[in-house]
């Protein structure tokens, strides 16, 4: 395996792990439900995406072909993350989950 591929894989792995961790820190640290929604939908999706891309590069440099499963997993995660965030936000508005004091603007429930 070439040095370039090794560096690319390692960097992608570390970046992916860091983003996943940051998403989880956001989930644990931010003050209310709506702000916590931001960590998983963005940071975690990108983190897992980077890890999966590094797996694609790794197996293709080993000469085992391009993984369709990996690409499907990535596409699926990027398509479903906003949908589940949206559903959860609707559920939270229906249940009138508390927001932090410095939130401006109003929720609605229809």
């Amino acid at each position: 395996m070439s040095t370039f591929a090794e560096i690319a894989i390692s960097v992608l792995l570390l970046v992916g792990g860091a983003f996943t961790l940051i998403g989880a820190i956001g989930l644990a640290r931010l003050p209310d439900f709506y702000t916590r929604l931001h960590g998983p939908t963005k940071a975690t999706t990108v983190g897992v995406g980077a890890i999966v891309v590094s797996s694609v590069i790794y197996f293709s440099t080993l000469g085992r072909g391009i993984g369709v499963e990996e690409i499907l997993v990535t596409v699926f995660l990027f398509m479903t993350a906003p949908v589940s965030a949206n559903f959860l936000a609707k559920a939270a508005m229906h249940l009138e989950v508390k927001t932090t004091e410095n939130t401006r603007g109003q929720t609605w429930d229809q």
Binding site: G16, T20, G23, A24, L27, F33, R36, L37, G39, P40, T44, T45, G47, V48, I51, V52, S55, E70, V73, L77, S84, L88, A91, A92, L95, V97, K98
Partner: peptide
């Protein structure tokens, strides 16, 4: 609240995918 728990479980399964990869 319940939505917090569901959100955390959602993130947990995404992390499980990362661990499997």
């Amino acid at each position: 609240d319940a939505p917090d728990r569901v959100l955390a479980l959602d993130t947990l399964y995404v992390n499980a995918i990362a661990l499997i990869v």
